[in-house]
Amino acid sequence: MVEAECLECEAKMKINDDVVVGEIISCPDCGADYEIASLNNGTVTIKVAESVKEDWGE
């Protein structure tokens, strides 16, 4: 299991080994959402997840 640091509160976020690019993870401390931006040999890069408003097509 790898870790990433929350960009808001610096808490450590544990990330499952089977995480995929695009997956959304949440900081267990402050609740901030992050998107997995890249995965490279066990190194994970995160970015702040966009707030997506609910909307639908037909």
């Binding site: 089977d18 695009g22 997956e23 997840a49 997506v52």
Partner: peptide
Amino acid sequence: RKQRLVIIDERGRKVAIEGGYTGK
């Protein structure tokens, strides 16, 4: 056009994907 969609994948986890051709 929606740039990103957040969905629940087959593992039950939240994943952001390309928004496709839907809009607000």
